[in-house]
């Protein structure tokens, strides 16, 4: 009999966890290398561009704050697509993807909150205000923590996957609220200056380091996500093996 092929020829082949693990083993060193190179360039640009005429050196906080804030929303969007994959297509790796992304999303949201607060104090004169943008991002952070807690609290992974998927999709309403909060309400937080109709209003001097850092953060997210998915697949294999071992021991007794 011939060896089963682990080659991925079509998207549905990724539904096979063994194939997915083989793909991760090949891809992650390249992704990690690319991430490191992008961070090296991004950090160099972040610290060699001039300061802002109004904000001074604190403008450099933007190069970590803004990508982290974007990633906090992108990560939740990936989780929402995964939730659809769980509920609609019953893709075997969809729940693995959502579960693996939650701690990473919580991490990026925490970075956005901390760096935003550290930027707010010298620019606004306060660490925190309960305005629409800051509050909605804080709610996003709490949602990530809630989803992590929910997955840990439920023993049955199938049931946990369905409940999590529904909650993720319900919580997705917060993403447009975060994005448009600065337009819908009067907030202390500035309106969008990069991703907006009519193009960016930010000077190219600041735009380039910001874009390179945003791509670096995105690559970091994808690298961490596939590695966390690999860990989750191994965790599930261990759980299955333990159940088999317990059943075999029960039958033998």
């Amino acid at each position: 009999m011939s060896e089963p092929s682990l080659a991925i020829r079509k998207f549905s082949d990724l539904a096979n966890p063994t194939r997915f693990l083989a793909l991760v083993a090949t891809v992650w060193p390249w992704l990690a290398g690319l991430t490191l190179c992008l961070f090296a360039v991004g950090l160099y640009l972040s610290f060699t561009t001039t300061g802002d005429y109004q904000q001074g050196e604190t403008v450099r906080i933007m190069y970590v704050h803004v990508p982290a804030a974007w990633l906090s929303m992108m990560c939740y969007t990936v989780m929402a697509l995964s939730a659809l994959g769980t509920l609609v297509w019953r893709h075997p790796l969809a729940d693995v993807s959502a579960k693996a992304a939650a701690p990473i999303g919580a991490g990026f949201t925490l970075v956005a909150l901390i760096t935003g607060s550290l930027w707010g104090k010298p620019m606004w004169g306060t660490w925190w205000v309960w305005d629409a943008r800051l509050t909605s991002v804080f709610v996003l952070f709490l949602m990530y923590l809630g989803l992590i807690a929910l997955n840990r609290a439920m023993d049955d992974p199938t049931r946990a996957a369905k409940v999590s998927a529904v909650l993720i999709l319900v919580g997705f309403v917060n993403i447009p609220i975060i994005k448009f909060s600065v337009e819908w309400w009067n907030t202390l937080h500035q309106p969008a200056s990069v991703v907006r109709m009519g193009g960016p209003t930010i000077d190219p001097e600041f735009l380039w380091p910001l874009l390179v850092m945003a791509i670096a953060f995105s690559m970091l997210f994808f690298t961490l996500h596939i590695l966390a998915m690999r860990n989750e697949i191994l965790r599930r294999r261990i759980a299955v093996l333990r159940r088999h071992a317990a059943r075999s021991a029960g039958d033998a007794a």
Binding site: T58, I61, V64, P103, G107, V111, T115, L118, L224
Partner: peptide, 20 residues
């Protein structure tokens, strides 16, 4: 301003290395 910039980058690196 250097304090706020340094603290922001330390926080970002700490959380990133925590995730890694």
């Amino acid at each position: 301003h250097a304090f706020y910039v340094t603290a922001s980058y330390i926080a970002a690196f700490a959380v990133t290395f925590g995730l890694v």
